[in-house]
Design a protein around this nucleic acid. Structure first.
Lengths: 184, 184
DNA sequence: CCGATATACCTCGCCTTCGAGGTATTAAGT
DNA sequence: ACTTAATACCTCGAAGGCGAGGTATATCGG
Protein backbone atom coordinates (compact mmCIF):
# COMPACT_ATOMS: atom_id res chain seq x y z
CA UNK A 1 0.00 0.00 0.00
CA UNK A 2 1.37 3.36 -1.08
CA UNK A 3 1.13 6.00 1.65
CA UNK A 4 2.15 9.36 0.30
CA UNK A 5 -0.14 11.55 2.37
CA UNK A 6 2.03 14.26 3.82
CA UNK A 7 -0.75 15.77 5.89
CA UNK A 8 -1.58 12.44 7.49
CA UNK A 9 2.01 12.21 8.69
CA UNK A 10 1.82 15.72 10.13
CA UNK A 11 -1.40 14.93 11.96
CA UNK A 12 -0.02 11.73 13.43
CA UNK A 13 3.19 13.52 14.34
CA UNK A 14 1.60 16.44 16.15
CA UNK A 15 -0.95 14.26 17.96
CA UNK A 16 1.82 11.94 19.16
CA UNK A 17 2.83 14.67 21.61
CA UNK A 18 -0.59 15.66 22.87
CA UNK A 19 -4.30 15.58 21.97
CA UNK A 20 -5.36 18.56 19.89
CA UNK A 21 -8.51 19.75 18.20
CA UNK A 22 -8.70 20.25 14.46
CA UNK A 23 -8.40 24.00 14.50
CA UNK A 24 -5.22 23.96 16.56
CA UNK A 25 -3.88 21.17 14.36
CA UNK A 26 -4.53 23.33 11.34
CA UNK A 27 -2.42 26.14 12.80
CA UNK A 28 0.50 23.81 13.54
CA UNK A 29 0.42 22.13 10.16
CA UNK A 30 0.22 25.56 8.54
CA UNK A 31 3.33 26.69 10.44
CA UNK A 32 5.26 23.57 9.49
CA UNK A 33 4.44 23.22 5.80
CA UNK A 34 1.96 25.99 5.03
CA UNK A 35 4.83 28.34 4.39
CA UNK A 36 5.48 26.39 1.25
CA UNK A 37 2.03 25.09 0.54
CA UNK A 38 -0.96 26.46 2.44
CA UNK A 39 -3.20 23.94 4.09
CA UNK A 40 -6.86 23.95 3.06
CA UNK A 41 -9.76 22.92 5.27
CA UNK A 42 -10.85 20.65 2.48
CA UNK A 43 -7.56 18.79 2.89
CA UNK A 44 -7.30 18.68 6.66
CA UNK A 45 -10.74 17.55 7.73
CA UNK A 46 -11.11 14.69 5.25
CA UNK A 47 -7.64 13.53 6.30
CA UNK A 48 -8.75 13.49 9.94
CA UNK A 49 -11.81 11.48 8.93
CA UNK A 50 -9.68 8.94 7.09
CA UNK A 51 -7.45 8.47 10.12
CA UNK A 52 -10.49 8.12 12.37
CA UNK A 53 -12.12 5.63 10.01
CA UNK A 54 -8.92 3.56 10.11
CA UNK A 55 -8.97 3.55 13.91
CA UNK A 56 -5.80 5.63 14.25
CA UNK A 57 -7.41 8.41 16.26
CA UNK A 58 -10.48 9.02 18.39
CA UNK A 59 -12.46 12.18 18.83
CA UNK A 60 -13.99 13.54 21.99
CA UNK A 61 -16.55 16.34 21.70
CA UNK A 62 -15.98 19.19 24.14
CA UNK A 63 -17.82 22.50 24.55
CA UNK A 64 -15.85 25.19 22.74
CA UNK A 65 -13.67 27.39 24.90
CA UNK A 66 -14.09 30.45 22.73
CA UNK A 67 -16.58 29.41 20.07
CA UNK A 68 -18.15 26.34 18.50
CA UNK A 69 -17.70 22.92 20.14
CA UNK A 70 -14.33 21.25 19.60
CA UNK A 71 -13.48 17.75 18.53
CA UNK A 72 -10.46 16.86 20.63
CA UNK A 73 -8.40 14.30 18.74
CA UNK A 74 -6.37 11.62 20.49
CA UNK A 75 -4.15 8.99 18.90
CA UNK A 76 -5.11 5.40 19.62
CA UNK A 77 -2.49 2.72 20.27
CA UNK A 78 -2.90 1.72 16.64
CA UNK A 79 -2.28 5.34 15.66
CA UNK A 80 0.91 5.50 17.72
CA UNK A 81 2.11 2.26 16.15
CA UNK A 82 1.24 3.57 12.70
CA UNK A 83 3.38 6.69 13.17
CA UNK A 84 6.28 4.48 14.27
CA UNK A 85 5.81 2.42 11.13
CA UNK A 86 5.59 5.39 8.79
CA UNK A 87 8.70 6.95 10.33
CA UNK A 88 10.67 3.73 10.31
CA UNK A 89 9.79 2.71 6.76
CA UNK A 90 8.88 5.78 4.77
CA UNK A 91 7.96 5.46 1.11
CA UNK A 92 10.54 6.87 -1.31
CA UNK A 93 8.92 10.30 -1.77
CA UNK A 94 9.43 10.95 1.94
CA UNK A 95 13.16 10.50 1.39
CA UNK A 96 13.56 12.30 -1.92
CA UNK A 97 10.95 15.05 -1.87
CA UNK A 98 12.18 18.04 0.13
CA UNK A 99 8.77 18.93 1.54
CA UNK A 100 8.01 15.41 2.68
CA UNK A 101 11.54 14.92 4.00
CA UNK A 102 11.22 18.05 6.14
CA UNK A 103 8.05 16.61 7.60
CA UNK A 104 9.99 13.45 8.41
CA UNK A 105 12.66 15.50 10.18
CA UNK A 106 10.01 17.29 12.21
CA UNK A 107 8.82 14.05 13.78
CA UNK A 108 11.75 11.65 13.58
CA UNK A 109 12.43 12.23 17.27
CA UNK A 110 9.27 10.21 17.98
CA UNK A 111 10.86 7.11 16.50
CA UNK A 112 11.78 4.90 19.42
CA UNK A 113 15.02 3.26 18.38
CA UNK A 114 18.11 5.30 17.47
CA UNK A 115 19.10 2.52 15.08
CA UNK A 116 15.90 3.05 13.13
CA UNK A 117 16.43 6.80 13.11
CA UNK A 118 19.92 6.22 11.77
CA UNK A 119 18.61 3.98 9.00
CA UNK A 120 16.30 6.73 7.80
CA UNK A 121 19.09 9.31 7.81
CA UNK A 122 21.26 6.83 5.97
CA UNK A 123 18.64 6.47 3.23
CA UNK A 124 18.58 10.23 2.79
CA UNK A 125 22.38 10.34 2.70
CA UNK A 126 22.51 7.62 0.07
CA UNK A 127 20.00 9.53 -2.02
CA UNK A 128 21.91 12.81 -1.73
CA UNK A 129 25.27 11.27 -2.60
CA UNK A 130 24.01 9.45 -5.68
CA UNK A 131 25.39 11.00 -8.85
CA UNK A 132 22.67 12.97 -10.59
CA UNK A 133 22.19 15.83 -12.99
CA UNK A 134 19.26 17.94 -14.09
CA UNK A 135 20.19 17.92 -17.75
CA UNK A 136 21.99 15.55 -20.08
CA UNK A 137 23.52 15.66 -23.52
CA UNK A 138 22.99 12.05 -24.46
CA UNK A 139 24.92 10.17 -21.79
CA UNK A 140 26.96 13.14 -20.64
CA UNK A 141 25.65 14.91 -17.55
CA UNK A 142 25.68 18.67 -17.99
CA UNK A 143 27.17 20.94 -15.34
CA UNK A 144 26.79 24.55 -14.31
CA UNK A 145 29.60 25.59 -16.64
CA UNK A 146 27.73 24.14 -19.63
CA UNK A 147 25.06 26.81 -19.43
CA UNK A 148 25.12 30.45 -20.40
CA UNK A 149 21.96 31.56 -18.71
CA UNK A 150 22.27 32.57 -15.06
CA UNK A 151 19.13 30.68 -14.06
CA UNK A 152 20.31 27.19 -14.86
CA UNK A 153 23.68 28.11 -13.39
CA UNK A 154 21.81 29.18 -10.25
CA UNK A 155 19.89 25.92 -10.22
CA UNK A 156 23.18 24.04 -9.94
CA UNK A 157 24.71 26.48 -7.49
CA UNK A 158 21.80 26.26 -5.10
CA UNK A 159 21.30 22.53 -5.41
CA UNK A 160 24.98 21.82 -4.82
CA UNK A 161 25.31 24.16 -1.86
CA UNK A 162 22.19 22.90 -0.13
CA UNK A 163 22.98 19.25 -0.55
CA UNK A 164 26.52 19.82 0.70
CA UNK A 165 25.19 21.41 3.88
CA UNK A 166 22.76 18.61 4.45
CA UNK A 167 25.30 15.89 3.76
CA UNK A 168 27.55 17.43 6.39
CA UNK A 169 24.76 17.51 8.93
CA UNK A 170 23.73 13.93 8.12
CA UNK A 171 27.28 12.62 8.61
CA UNK A 172 27.63 14.41 11.95
CA UNK A 173 24.28 13.27 13.21
CA UNK A 174 24.81 9.69 12.07
CA UNK A 175 28.13 9.61 13.89
CA UNK A 176 26.45 10.88 17.05
CA UNK A 177 23.65 8.34 16.76
CA UNK A 178 25.88 5.31 16.33
CA UNK A 179 29.28 6.06 17.87
CA UNK A 180 30.14 2.37 18.01
CA UNK A 181 29.87 1.77 14.27
CA UNK A 182 33.54 0.93 13.85
CA UNK A 183 33.46 -1.79 16.46
CA UNK A 184 30.40 -3.55 15.05
CA UNK B 1 -7.79 29.73 -13.42
CA UNK B 2 -5.34 27.96 -11.16
CA UNK B 3 -2.52 26.28 -13.04
CA UNK B 4 -0.38 24.22 -10.73
CA UNK B 5 0.67 21.52 -13.17
CA UNK B 6 4.40 21.15 -12.82
CA UNK B 7 4.69 18.67 -15.64
CA UNK B 8 2.86 20.93 -18.05
CA UNK B 9 5.44 23.63 -17.37
CA UNK B 10 8.26 21.15 -18.00
CA UNK B 11 6.71 20.04 -21.28
CA UNK B 12 6.21 23.61 -22.50
CA UNK B 13 9.73 24.49 -21.37
CA UNK B 14 11.50 21.63 -23.12
CA UNK B 15 9.47 21.97 -26.31
CA UNK B 16 10.24 25.70 -26.44
CA UNK B 17 13.76 24.77 -27.51
CA UNK B 18 12.95 22.10 -30.04
CA UNK B 19 10.25 19.62 -31.09
CA UNK B 20 10.47 16.32 -29.25
CA UNK B 21 8.52 13.11 -29.12
CA UNK B 22 6.92 11.91 -25.91
CA UNK B 23 9.49 9.30 -25.06
CA UNK B 24 12.38 11.75 -25.29
CA UNK B 25 10.33 14.26 -23.31
CA UNK B 26 9.86 11.66 -20.63
CA UNK B 27 13.61 11.19 -20.30
CA UNK B 28 14.25 14.92 -19.99
CA UNK B 29 11.49 15.48 -17.48
CA UNK B 30 12.75 12.49 -15.52
CA UNK B 31 16.26 13.99 -15.40
CA UNK B 32 14.97 17.36 -14.25
CA UNK B 33 12.45 16.40 -11.58
CA UNK B 34 12.34 12.62 -11.61
CA UNK B 35 15.26 12.52 -9.24
CA UNK B 36 12.89 13.81 -6.61
CA UNK B 37 9.65 12.43 -7.92
CA UNK B 38 9.63 9.87 -10.73
CA UNK B 39 7.48 10.66 -13.70
CA UNK B 40 4.80 8.12 -14.58
CA UNK B 41 3.50 7.47 -18.10
CA UNK B 42 0.06 7.93 -16.67
CA UNK B 43 1.04 11.48 -15.77
CA UNK B 44 2.97 12.45 -18.88
CA UNK B 45 0.72 11.32 -21.70
CA UNK B 46 -2.53 12.74 -20.31
CA UNK B 47 -0.67 16.03 -19.75
CA UNK B 48 0.40 16.05 -23.40
CA UNK B 49 -3.21 15.42 -24.41
CA UNK B 50 -4.42 18.31 -22.28
CA UNK B 51 -1.93 20.67 -23.90
CA UNK B 52 -2.90 19.42 -27.36
CA UNK B 53 -6.60 19.79 -26.59
CA UNK B 54 -5.94 23.39 -25.54
CA UNK B 55 -4.12 24.09 -28.79
CA UNK B 56 -0.73 24.64 -27.17
CA UNK B 57 1.04 21.92 -29.13
CA UNK B 58 0.62 19.90 -32.31
CA UNK B 59 1.66 16.36 -33.02
CA UNK B 60 3.13 14.97 -36.20
CA UNK B 61 3.24 11.20 -36.65
CA UNK B 62 6.58 9.89 -37.90
CA UNK B 63 7.79 6.34 -38.47
CA UNK B 64 9.82 5.29 -35.45
CA UNK B 65 13.57 5.43 -35.83
CA UNK B 66 14.22 2.46 -33.57
CA UNK B 67 10.79 1.13 -32.76
CA UNK B 68 7.12 2.12 -32.75
CA UNK B 69 6.00 5.28 -34.58
CA UNK B 70 6.67 8.54 -32.82
CA UNK B 71 4.44 11.50 -32.19
CA UNK B 72 6.70 14.49 -32.67
CA UNK B 73 5.39 17.36 -30.57
CA UNK B 74 5.77 20.98 -31.60
CA UNK B 75 4.65 24.06 -29.68
CA UNK B 76 2.13 26.26 -31.46
CA UNK B 77 2.32 30.06 -31.26
CA UNK B 78 -0.33 29.85 -28.57
CA UNK B 79 1.87 27.35 -26.73
CA UNK B 80 4.88 29.66 -26.90
CA UNK B 81 2.78 32.54 -25.63
CA UNK B 82 1.42 30.34 -22.84
CA UNK B 83 4.91 29.49 -21.61
CA UNK B 84 5.78 33.19 -21.56
CA UNK B 85 2.66 33.83 -19.52
CA UNK B 86 3.29 31.02 -17.05
CA UNK B 87 6.88 32.12 -16.56
CA UNK B 88 6.01 35.79 -16.20
CA UNK B 89 3.10 35.32 -13.82
CA UNK B 90 3.56 32.04 -11.96
CA UNK B 91 1.02 31.01 -9.35
CA UNK B 92 2.26 31.12 -5.77
CA UNK B 93 3.27 27.44 -5.48
CA UNK B 94 5.79 27.99 -8.27
CA UNK B 95 7.46 30.61 -6.07
CA UNK B 96 7.24 28.88 -2.70
CA UNK B 97 7.45 25.16 -3.48
CA UNK B 98 11.06 24.10 -4.01
CA UNK B 99 10.28 21.54 -6.70
CA UNK B 100 8.15 23.90 -8.73
CA UNK B 101 10.58 26.76 -8.22
CA UNK B 102 13.42 24.65 -9.60
CA UNK B 103 11.33 23.98 -12.67
CA UNK B 104 10.86 27.74 -13.03
CA UNK B 105 14.64 28.23 -12.84
CA UNK B 106 15.17 25.61 -15.51
CA UNK B 107 13.16 27.58 -18.05
CA UNK B 108 13.29 31.18 -16.92
CA UNK B 109 15.84 31.89 -19.64
CA UNK B 110 13.02 31.52 -22.16
CA UNK B 111 11.29 34.57 -20.72
CA UNK B 112 11.86 37.36 -23.21
CA UNK B 113 12.26 40.45 -21.06
CA UNK B 114 14.94 40.71 -18.37
CA UNK B 115 12.61 42.97 -16.41
CA UNK B 116 10.07 40.16 -16.20
CA UNK B 117 12.77 37.69 -15.20
CA UNK B 118 13.84 40.09 -12.46
CA UNK B 119 10.27 40.40 -11.18
CA UNK B 120 10.05 36.65 -10.75
CA UNK B 121 13.37 36.48 -8.90
CA UNK B 122 12.19 39.38 -6.76
CA UNK B 123 9.07 37.46 -5.77
CA UNK B 124 11.21 34.52 -4.69
CA UNK B 125 13.51 36.84 -2.75
CA UNK B 126 10.57 38.44 -0.97
CA UNK B 127 9.27 35.01 -0.05
CA UNK B 128 12.64 33.83 1.29
CA UNK B 129 13.24 36.96 3.38
CA UNK B 130 9.82 36.91 5.03
CA UNK B 131 10.10 36.02 8.71
CA UNK B 132 8.87 32.46 9.24
CA UNK B 133 9.23 29.55 11.60
CA UNK B 134 8.29 25.91 11.52
CA UNK B 135 7.05 25.80 15.09
CA UNK B 136 5.48 28.26 17.49
CA UNK B 137 4.81 28.46 21.19
CA UNK B 138 1.73 30.65 21.03
CA UNK B 139 3.01 33.81 19.34
CA UNK B 140 6.67 33.11 19.94
CA UNK B 141 8.52 31.55 17.01
CA UNK B 142 10.70 28.68 18.12
CA UNK B 143 14.32 28.44 17.02
CA UNK B 144 16.90 25.70 16.65
CA UNK B 145 18.10 26.25 20.21
CA UNK B 146 14.61 25.56 21.57
CA UNK B 147 14.81 21.91 20.61
CA UNK B 148 16.66 19.04 22.17
CA UNK B 149 16.32 16.55 19.39
CA UNK B 150 18.92 16.68 16.63
CA UNK B 151 16.31 16.30 13.87
CA UNK B 152 14.42 19.50 14.47
CA UNK B 153 17.75 21.26 15.02
CA UNK B 154 18.83 19.88 11.65
CA UNK B 155 15.62 21.08 10.06
CA UNK B 156 16.52 24.64 11.06
CA UNK B 157 20.19 24.27 10.20
CA UNK B 158 19.46 23.04 6.70
CA UNK B 159 16.64 25.46 6.01
CA UNK B 160 18.68 28.44 7.17
CA UNK B 161 21.80 27.48 5.25
CA UNK B 162 19.98 26.78 2.01
CA UNK B 163 17.94 29.94 2.05
CA UNK B 164 21.04 32.00 2.84
CA UNK B 165 22.80 30.58 -0.22
CA UNK B 166 19.85 31.25 -2.43
CA UNK B 167 19.30 34.77 -1.12
CA UNK B 168 22.90 35.56 -1.98
CA UNK B 169 22.51 34.20 -5.48
CA UNK B 170 19.24 36.07 -5.99
CA UNK B 171 20.77 39.41 -4.94
CA UNK B 172 23.74 38.93 -7.26
CA UNK B 173 21.62 37.89 -10.19
CA UNK B 174 19.13 40.67 -9.66
CA UNK B 175 21.96 43.19 -9.60
CA UNK B 176 23.30 41.80 -12.87
CA UNK B 177 19.86 41.83 -14.49
CA UNK B 178 19.08 45.44 -13.62
CA UNK B 179 22.35 47.34 -13.21
CA UNK B 180 20.59 50.68 -13.66
CA UNK B 181 18.27 50.26 -10.70
CA UNK B 182 19.79 53.12 -8.73
CA UNK B 183 19.32 55.60 -11.54
CA UNK B 184 15.71 54.69 -12.20
C1' DC C 1 12.85 -18.45 -35.20
C1' DC C 2 12.30 -17.34 -30.38
C1' DG C 3 12.60 -14.63 -26.42
C1' DA C 4 14.36 -10.66 -24.20
C1' DT C 5 15.00 -5.84 -24.23
C1' DA C 6 14.36 -1.15 -25.50
C1' DT C 7 11.42 1.89 -27.76
C1' DA C 8 6.93 4.22 -27.96
C1' DC C 9 2.32 5.15 -26.68
C1' DC C 10 -2.10 4.52 -24.24
C1' DT C 11 -6.21 3.76 -20.64
C1' DC C 12 -8.21 3.04 -16.26
C1' DG C 13 -9.44 3.63 -11.48
C1' DC C 14 -7.76 5.47 -7.34
C1' DC C 15 -6.02 8.78 -4.00
C1' DT C 16 -4.67 13.22 -2.32
C1' DT C 17 -5.23 17.84 -2.51
C1' DC C 18 -7.54 22.05 -3.76
C1' DG C 19 -10.84 25.88 -3.83
C1' DA C 20 -15.20 27.45 -3.10
C1' DG C 21 -18.79 27.19 -0.87
C1' DG C 22 -21.58 26.40 3.70
C1' DT C 23 -23.08 26.24 9.02
C1' DA C 24 -22.68 27.44 13.89
C1' DT C 25 -20.96 29.70 18.15
C1' DT C 26 -18.95 33.26 20.95
C1' DA C 27 -16.80 37.80 21.94
C1' DA C 28 -16.09 42.49 21.02
C1' DG C 29 -17.18 46.66 19.17
C1' DT C 30 -20.87 50.24 17.96
C1' DA D 1 -29.72 45.30 18.79
C1' DC D 2 -26.43 44.69 14.90
C1' DT D 3 -22.30 43.72 12.68
C1' DT D 4 -17.80 41.97 12.44
C1' DA D 5 -14.24 38.90 13.54
C1' DA D 6 -12.46 34.81 15.25
C1' DT D 7 -13.29 30.20 16.32
C1' DA D 8 -14.60 25.58 14.72
C1' DC D 9 -16.14 22.24 11.55
C1' DC D 10 -18.02 20.37 7.19
C1' DT D 11 -19.18 18.98 1.97
C1' DC D 12 -18.63 18.96 -2.83
C1' DG D 13 -16.74 18.80 -7.51
C1' DA D 14 -12.61 19.09 -10.00
C1' DA D 15 -7.87 18.41 -11.07
C1' DG D 16 -3.26 16.49 -10.91
C1' DG D 17 -0.68 12.64 -10.29
C1' DC D 18 0.04 7.60 -9.49
C1' DG D 19 0.46 2.60 -10.28
C1' DA D 20 -0.94 -1.13 -12.78
C1' DG D 21 -2.16 -2.70 -16.46
C1' DG D 22 -2.13 -3.00 -21.90
C1' DT D 23 -0.52 -2.71 -27.14
C1' DA D 24 2.78 -2.45 -30.69
C1' DT D 25 7.46 -2.27 -33.21
C1' DA D 26 12.39 -3.03 -33.86
C1' DT D 27 16.83 -5.07 -32.61
C1' DC D 28 19.86 -8.47 -30.97
C1' DG D 29 21.51 -12.77 -28.95
C1' DG D 30 21.15 -17.56 -29.03
Amino acid sequence: MYRSGMIELSILGFLYDEPLHGYELRKRVAALTGHVRPIADGTLYPAIKRLERDGLLERDLQPGAQAAPRHVLTLTDAGRAELQRRLAEPDEPFITDENRWFTMLAFLRHLDEPALQARVLQRRLTFLTEPASFFWDGDRPLRAADFDDPFRKGLFTIATATSRTEIGWLRETLAALAPRDREA
